[in-house]
Design a protein around this nucleic acid. Structure first.
Lengths: 244, 244
DNA sequence: CTTGTCTAGTGGTCTAGACAAGTGGACAAG
DNA sequence: CTTGTCCACTTGTCTAGACCACTAGACAAG
């Protein structure tokens, strides 16, 4: 990517600078521990002000791609990059940065019988693509009842989203998923597909997806990569406040 | 918290404003879907500029506590996690005097040095007691900075809630926890304490607790029994709805 | 009734500075 | 050699504006 030419005039400058820096890191020109250009350097390079440059770096800081150190500089973080599970599972589209794209790779697809019903079993690696670098973040197995979605077993899912197919071909609109989280020791296949090295156990979610009428349309098992984070916050009630 | 009085003069104003807003939400004065005060309102209230106010709101946006909507306002986010399932994390307070009683058993308690600071490390088995039958549901390790809570290392925690002690003795009111969930292979000690049989991996949460001033008061590691269910739901966005 | 325009209020982006505070090297004093 | 001071460079915080884009309601024109 050239330094100054933006994709179009409507891309905010801070997003553009952020992409420039992200490319430096993901393309390997900067690696773990390296300092990115200082804020004043970037100000000169892009002909802008520190406020805009800091906005750009803020994005990378929130992605945990870099870390600021007061008085020293801003440094590339140790890999692996971690993603928040809500960004991934919920609204990949709203990442705001079109450099990120949801991708999927089919591992296997066939029909099977279970509890007297025929299901289409689809196993996919799913992840995000940033600057031509694909990071697979989960191994998803879907079981879809064939009687509800006839013909789904002959669809090529390499370049079609499952939910897009539901919407366009079957007029079924997925609305929510209900999942239960567990921890499982992974096998060699899972380890290889998700490129896990030292990790022996991973988060696994079991559950179902429901459509606009709250009908169960899909059973799901997702094995999450260790590069994905499950962050949550809780509020703590104070008993004394109940006396108010 | 009063609007303008900062904890001390060294707290950046944007952090202070962020705490004010977070308190509004966590204390229930603003709930899901409500708009927080507009940026210009906050500028007037705190006598500052939009840049500083936006820095404050940025923090909450990154915590996914609020969501900005261009042209409309900034709104309190829906929490995708069903709240009830996390409540056992503070069950000593929330179960109170119902038929089931919260119980804790101290496994170890001593002081330790970490990163140049002295912490009190408290390891407890926590669970519930129903009809004289005790079921331990988590193995919690707490690290509490001794300089903030002098004398806490000589307290008997067999029959005292840690948070009750914080409130009554130290006038510190725990308000929220921020945790990250991972999967870990368990060792023999953990297996024995939590009475796990076939389970080889368990869910583990790492994180911190914060008080009414949003100061970190406790670092936490919880290993959860497989007898606890972690349920969550996600909403699925429909691209066509964006065209409305 | 529908349609279009105007307007007040909102967040989105950006400029052009200022001073504070932490880091690390150069260099002089002891 | 060690110690302390100074200085250049870094990020952290903040001010005081500017203009843009989007939303929603009021209101007039058709």
């Amino acid at each position: 990517m050239s330094v100054t030419a933006r994709a179009n005039d409507f891309t905010p400058l801070y997003v553009h600078i952020g992409r420039y820096l992200r490319a430096l890191i993901l393309d390997g020109e900067l690696t773990t521990g390296d300092a990115i250009p200082s804020e004043t350097d970037l100000v000169k390079k892009f002909g802008t002000t520190r406020g805009t440059v800091r906005s750009a770096v803020d994005v990378l800081v929130n992605e945990k791609l870099v870390q600021r150190v007061h008085g020293k500089g801003t440094f590339v973080q140790a890999r692996p990059i971690r993603h928040d599970i809500w960004d991934f599972g919920g609204f990949t589209d709203s990442l705001g940065d079109q450099a990120s794209l949801a991708v999927a790779k089919v591992i296997s697809a066939h029909t099977m019988d279970l509890e007297g019903r025929t299901y289409f079993e689809l196993v996919r690696l799913r992840g995000i693509k940033v600057n031509d670098h694909i990071d697979y973040l989960s191994l998803d197995t879907s079981w879809i009842p064939l009687d509800m979605f006839p013909g789904i077993d002959v669809v090529d899912f390499e370049d079609r989203s499952l939910y897009e197919l539901f919407r366009k071909t079957y007029d079924t609109h997925p609305r929510r998923t209900a999942m239960t989280l567990t921890a499982e020791v992974i096998d060699d296949t899972e380890r290889r597909l998700l490129k896990e090295k030292s990790q022996d156990a991973l988060l696994v979610a079991h559950g179902s997806a429901f459509d606009q009428n709250d009908i169960e349309i899909e059973r799901i098992k997702s094995v999450y990569s260790s590069r994905i984070q499950f962050n949550f916050t809780t509020a703590i009630a104070d008993p004394e406040e109940w006396l108010k």
